[in-house]
């Protein structure tokens, strides 16, 4: 359980980190919390020749509100979100999500940016990022660009980040008080990778749902949205029957992958239940 040999860099400025990335490109792997990378290296499933440790780079932590968005520094640890980081439905939602991420030691070390850069389809932050249509801001020695979540997740463990890019921020929409948000997942043990999860956000006006976002995780090679569940919700008044119908509509449109813990058919059952439960929570 020892990793293969690697070179280690610990830059102290963002410019230095970006210069190292520009120099080493695909040879290099960024390490922040290391909660996925280090086990993979110890199993020798990952063998990056060069590690760039960004823990000494200033300015990558913390959250701020800006132009209707919650801007999350990429190195912000999961544990930061255990208590609401913003007033309103989004802060509450993120706290509910954070409680489902692994265990306390992992939450105190793992980071949001590390999680989405790793792009494990069963990651809660990936599901939220995709489901709530976040923007991801990447930096390189040559500039800075914003990538919509829909383009960011390409396949399992693969994102749109270029080898010379560092993920700097994640920008989520700040929902107003007319939004209702919920999250549900099913994992076999407390803290395990979820077999399926759903995040929902609905804006209610005049007693009916006018806008909705539904994201699903753990069921395909990337986190996905569920336009079918959204379609079922729009224009309807929230009710238990509606939530069940949205779950059924969302699940029927999926064709989930199977593995040893969950067949595709079982995952479909879970998707249905998780959408429904996330909606129940949102409107509780």
């Amino acid at each position: 359980m020892k990793p293969a040999a690697f070179a280690y860099h610990r830059p102290e400025t963002r410019a230095e980190a970006l210069a190292l990335l520009a120099e080493h490109g695909e040879e290099a792997k960024i390490i922040a919390g290391g909660q996925s990378l280090v086990p993979a290296m110890n199993f020798r499933l990952a063998r990056p020749p060069i590690l760039i440790d960004i823990n000494a780079v200033p300015g990558l932590d913390g959250v701020r509100e800006e132009a209707g968005q919650l801007v999350i520094g990429a190195r912000t640890r999961h544990a930061t979100f255990e208590k609401p980081v913003t007033a309103g439905p989004l802060g509450t939602l993120l706290a509910r999500v954070a409680a489902n991420i692994a265990h306390t030691p992992i939450r105190s070390r793992g980071s949001w940016g590390g999680s989405v850069s790793h792009a494990d389809p069963a990651s809660e932050w990936c599901c939220v990022t995709r489901g709530l249509e976040a923007e991801l801001v990447a930096e390189s020695a040559t500039g800075r660009r914003s990538i919509p979540a829909a383009d960011f997740f390409q396949t399992i463990f693969t994102t749109a980040l270029r080898p010379d890019e560092l993920l700097a921020e994640i920008r989520l929409p700040l929902f107003g008080p007319d939004w209702h948000c919920g999250f549900a997942e099913y994992a076999r043990r407390a803290g395990d990778f979820a077999l399926a999860m759903a995040v929902v956000a609905c804006r209610v006006e005049g007693g009916v749902i006018r806008e909705a976002r539904v994201g699903l995780g753990g069921i395909a090679s990337t986190p996905v949205t569920s336009p079918e569940a959204v379609a079922a919700l729009l224009g309807q008044a929230p009710s238990p029957a509606l939530f069940a119908a949205a779950g059924a509509a969302g699940a029927a449109a999926t064709d989930p992958d199977g593995d040893i813990h969950a067949s595709g058919e079982y995952r479909q059952d879970l998707v249905k239940a998780m959408i429904r439960r996330a909606l129940v929570q949102a409107f509780a």
Partner: peptide, 16 residues
Amino acid sequence: ILTGSFADFIPPTMAE
């Protein structure tokens, strides 16, 4: 063998 770690072969924890 498909269960080569405690992520896949899952003994109960204090929570279970």
